[in-house]
Design a protein around this nucleic acid. Structure first.
Lengths: 342, 342
DNA sequence: ATTGAGGTCTGAAGCGTTTCAGATTTCTGT
DNA sequence: ACAGAAATCTGAAACGCTTCAGACCTCAAT
């Protein structure tokens, strides 16, 4: 069953293809009788114009940019996308999103799909931080499709990047904990493949080292990135332990922290009296928890805005302009989940 | 500055357009020397093939469906989209999303954008429930682009719909509260334009009426749909009130409930000892709160799956098959935020 | 009946690609 | 040096649509 084309509609209606085109495009130069004959033909054949064939010359195309995020489940991304939308709108672009759900294969496919939809450019939040395979990005470059990496990747792949200094942020957060008297600090780390997880861990270690402390092996828990992961890891790590426990836990992100908070509550441990907990990101819910979360705020809206801005700028420049890197600042937000040790 | 076409690249490289095409498509029938000459030409002209012109005959197109959601900020939608993606994948479709951010204009534009990208069909979660303007949907129908409404609209616009019986769900939830002894139940309602907000309110009223109760005017608070709304309304409604208060509050959704929980906590009211609170949706975080939330679970994954399934089915049927309606079940999830009155 | 102005319709040209039959070039073996 | 095979390249045709100059109709005015 091959596609019904405008020609068949014209034949069925007994008119020329030009007339069918006029009907489809709502031109007023068609006699009513003819119009309804054509419409009948369209209906009976279930004709659907191939958009790709229409937009070649015609109306100044709808401009759009693609946005590939890593996962839908973290509310973190919502703010970023909204930021990108706000900026894109100003420049007359629409944003269309796809999610790689943390899978590298999906990310590649998403790039192909978006490219095939003729987006003007793509913002990519890479699923993997340190994968040596950048063929999909090279492909994009080869096709002269502008792209920007949001929260870039390790290595020195020459691309325009909007990022945050995760190492420094984690360092600052840890330093704060040390300053308020914590000596034994645990870390609920993110996914092993996550570049951020690594950077944050580095920052934590550096801050500890500066004060002659270390992250004990038993205090480094590879939790993950989701709510459930934080909860599960929390139960595992804290169940049945006596006072032999860290006085503070830094979590890879707020979701993990929320899960941990729940686990501690179930285990009868109070926050922050028994354990201080910190998150990362400052997702909306963080301040509305029963124990509001101390966390490192990621400038999510700004991340979205800047990456759209940068992408649009690059679309207008010759491709030879060297890649640009924008690093945004994080903010330490102190709330009730941490306390100064006596 | 008009587009650079393959012809100019061919001229610059001193070859025919066929050869340029072969290079672009990675065919191995091109001599290395020629290939690099062509690539140089592509680079220097910053040539970017017009995808729309490529995919006409060529490779069996990437099939995709569009998904227009109402807002990005509610984690509620993440599960729905993931469900749709799972089903779509099985059938070889990709899902591309756009958000209307609750604005009817954006919804219309999103439809145009997706249609212009040649998606095979569209799932729409309508921004407005009871807008009389359905021109955008009629347009879709006229263009023979299959679509499915997720959480439909009032009125009897003949479209395929996947929905939940919100009235019944709210009724069930309220009935549960009545059964455990609550007599004075308040409601933190959703946005006035939201169709669901209305339906849920209806269900609540019906359940109350069945037991000879009413929703007092002062107990109906038009909160909104976001976390902040619940918090703000909670502070406003409960600050400085004595025992003259409802014993239970039903919230439009979980986000509102979380905000309310926080407000009550700040006001020194305990949940569920002083006030019982219920949500709606059962978003992931609901069970991880310090006071886990009693709520009505929306079958989010299933909603996504079913709407994708229905859409794909309709794409394969003649358009004349009458629209189909699928209604999914909700589940009452009782947790610690509600208690039986003595 | 004739004219001419609108109102309608037609169909070839063109959009930027891919395809592919055939032309041209290069290579291999003698 | 030459035939034939293999490698490479060419360019017209086709994809499904819109556009638009011009053909054809209709009908009021003469």
């Amino acid at each position: 069953m091959s596609r019904v084309t405008i020609r068949e509609v014209a034949a069925r209606a007994g008119v020329s293809i030009g007339t069918v085109s006029a009907v489809i495009n709502g031109k007023s130069t068609v006699k009513d009788a003819t119009r309804s004959r054509v419409k009948a033909a369209i209906d009976s054949l279930e004709y659907r114009p191939v958009e790709a064939a229409r937009r070649r010359l015609q109306t100044p195309r709808e401009k759009s940019i693609g946005f590939i995020i890593k996962e839908l489940h973290n509310p973190y991304y919502a703010d970023i996308i909204v930021g990108a939308q706000q900026t894109a709108e100003v420049h007359g672009f629409r944003v269309i999103c796809m999610s790689s759900e943390q899978r590298f294969e999906y990310e590649k496919e998403a790039i192909q799909t978006l490219a095939s939809k003729d987006v003007e450019g793509i913002i990519i939040n890479p699923a993997l931080g340190d994968d040596p395979d950048v063929s999909h990005l090279e492909d994009l470059r080869e096709r002269n499709i502008p792209f920007v990496l949001l929260e870039g990747m390790r290595g020195d792949f020459p691309a325009s990047i909007v990022d945050v200094d995760n190492e420094a942020a984690a360092h600052g957060l840890t330093r704060y904990l040390v300053e308020i008297g914590h000596r034994r600090i645990a870390h609920f780390a993110g996914p092993r493949v996550s570049m951020h997880a690594g950077e944050r861990l580095d920052g934590i270690r550096r801050a500890l080292a500066e004060s002659g402390l270390v992250l004990r092996a038993e205090d480094l828990v590879h939790a993950g990135a989701a709510l459930e992961d934080g909860y599960r890891a929390g139960i595992e790590r804290f169940a049945g332990r006596g006072p032999e426990r860290p006085t503070a836990v830094t979590c890879f992100n707020d979701l993990i922290a929320v899960g941990l908070l729940r686990a501690l509550h179930e285990l009868g441990l109070r926050v922050p009296e028994d354990v201080s907990v910190t998150g990362f990101d400052d997702i909306n819910v963080a301040r509305y928890l029963t124990v509001p979360l101390t966390t490192m705020r990621m400038p999510r809206n700004e991340m979205g805005r800047q990456s759209a801005e940068l992408l649009i700028r690059r679309m207008r420049q010759p491709i030879t302009v060297p890649p640009e890197r924008i690093t945004l600042e994080t903010d330490l937000v102190v709330r009730a989940s941490t306390r100064r040790l006596a």
